[in-house]
Amino acid sequence: MMLAIDFVVVAVIFVAAVGAMSCKNLVSSVLLGGLASLVASYLFLRMGAPDVAMTEAAIGAALTTVIFLVATRRTQEVEE
């Protein structure tokens, strides 16, 4: 049962990664990357590595998202 859940979760990460690659809007790519980070954290926990999962959680939940958003806003400002 846990193995079936693992398969579905890996399919979700694959879809998120492909979607983040092929999105035209930068904000949507950042959001799909955030989903990939969240699911990767669950997979680390499933494989028995809570330290790595906590690192992924602490960095991917707030910090990476905000840094990408601020960078997107700055570069768009320069081009306008």
Partner: peptide, 10 residues
């Protein structure tokens, strides 16, 4: 603990 970190930071 990992779930706690995610709950607070999301």
């Amino acid at each position: 603990d990992v779930a706690l970190v995610y709950a607070i930071l999301s």
